[in-house]
Amino acid sequence: MSAALAEGHIASAVQADGPPAIQLDKVNKWYGTMHVLRDISLQVATGERVVVCGPSGSGKSTMIRCINRLEQHQEGRILVDGTELTDDVRSLDAIRREVGMVFQSFNLFPHLTILENCTLAPIWVRRMPKKDAEELAMEYLRRVKIPEQANKYPGQLSGGQQQRVAIARALCMKPKIMLFDEPTSALDPEMIKEVLDTMVGLAEDGMTMVVVTHEMGFAQQVADRVIFMDRGEVVEQGPPEQIFNRPSTDRLKLFLSQILRGH
């Protein structure tokens, strides 16, 4: 983490033209009577890297999971790549093809080998020939630096390796947008760096990324914008330098003091 902090900020590749990659308009969501997302409005441009942070229970995971409809919002509109998320299965499948997701608990398929994990969706969703899919998978496994594990099962890999496989698996679908839901929270400290390095590499390539994380070093190095959420609301947002050094709300100040004490 500290190594990532020391390096300078990665140059952004945000493209202003064209529709935003992700657009949320006054999105509301309730679990029963609990209001978990309150009037969230947000735009993520193509090539932009957004880091979402906030205390636990602030709705940041719920928000990111609404973007590929693992959770359903009840009010407002969510547009991904110009397509609105509705109950229409076909548009949903189309969106999910373009949005990759990495989970806190990896969620690799334990009964399939690493290679099969990576080739399953390209073969059956993208209709790619098996051989091409395997070549593509090996290319991404090399990129996350574990090609030698291709024929092992997820249970034989360490947590950090599993998470890198999960990233490779998502990349094999050649998504336009990558969502990361606390990708390092379930990892032992010595494995966090290898996963963050992979994500930094991805950011350098200009991938549109929305990352829910507590890794402030990663946010400072990579993020174009940091969004601070609390109690289901976007409280503050801006470039990392502004959010971390000149917080304007008490809630953010409190949050920063808490996580800094933790480190």
């Binding site: 499948d93 989970f103 969620n107 690799l108 398929f109 399953l120 969706a121 059956w124 998502a170 679908m173």
Partner: peptide, 30 residues
């Protein structure tokens, strides 16, 4: 089966039958 398995399959854009046939049933039946 952990919910994460369903979610991972959904997030990859697998259709219901692909998800059921390749991810859910092989694990559930075992």
């Amino acid at each position: 089966l952990p919910k994460g398995q369903y979610e991972a399959a959904d997030a990859l854009g697998l259709s219901y039958w692909h998800k059921t046939g390749f991810i859910i049933l092989p694990q559930a039946l075992r």
